[in-house]
Amino acid sequence: MTDPKDFVAVVDSDVRKTPRRIAFITKRTSPQVHVKDEERVMTYPEVFFRTAVAIQVLAIILVVISLRWNAPLEGLADPMHTPNPAKAPWYFLGLQELLHYFPPVVAGVLIPGLVVMALIVIPYFNINIEAEGLWLRDKTRRLRIFGTVVVLFCIFLAVFDVWVALVPTLIVAAFMLLAAQTPPQITRGFRGWLASKPLSFWIMTWFLFELVVLTAIGTFFRGPGWSWVWPWRT
C-alpha cells in the first residue's frame, strides 16, 4: 500500500483548526481533493438533547417491557438437580454450541481468544483502510486462494460435524463468488455494492452471521442433552 503508484497520502497541516486527518487518494479517484469546512452545531444544546431524547426513548421502551414481562426466576439453586439442558446466558450460547462440537480447549479458550485478539488488532493492520473491492484486482490469484481456504475450512467443519457453522460459511462464500462474478462495469445496485466490498467486510460479515446463527441455535433449538428441538413444538 505504500506503493506510490497506487495512491498518495496527504496530511492536513492545520492540526490546530481541525483534527488531523489522512486522505488516501487512489488512482481511480480524482486527484483534486475538495476540502471544505463542514457545517457544525453546538454540542449544547443540540447533541446533548438529541442524545438525551434517544436515551429516554430507549428507557421508555425498557420501562414498558419491564412493566409487562417479568424477569425469569426459577427455583432455588440446587447443586443436586442439574436442569437439562443447563444453558449459559444467551450471549454465551454461541460458544456453548461450539463446545458441543469441539473440545473445551478449542471452543472455550482458543476460539474466543482468537476472536478477541482479532478484534483488537483490526485497526493496527490497516485492515479495510484501502476499502477496495476484494475482486477488483488480481482476481484469478485471489480466487484461487479464496477457493483453497474455503474448501479446507469447510472440510474441517464437516469433519467435526459442525453443519450449523458450515451453512453460514457456504452462504457467505456464495455471495463472495457472486461478487467475484460481477463484471467491472456494474457499479450500482446490489451486485455493484457487493463487488465494492473489501476482504475485511466479508470476514466480519461471516463472523456476524456465524455469531447470530450459533447464538440463535443455542437459544432456541437446543433441548435436553443439547439435542436438536424445534421451538414451536413444545
Binding site: F49, Q56, V63
Partner: peptide
C-alpha cells in the same frame, strides 16, 4: 430537541409512576 426532551421526560415519568 429541547421540546422533544421535555415531552419524552414527561412520558418517561408517567410510565415510571405506573409501577
Amino acid at each position: 430537541s429541547a421540546r422533544a426532551f421535555g415531552s419524552a421526560s414527561v412520558i418517561l415519568l408517567v410510565l415510571l409512576a405506573v409501577a
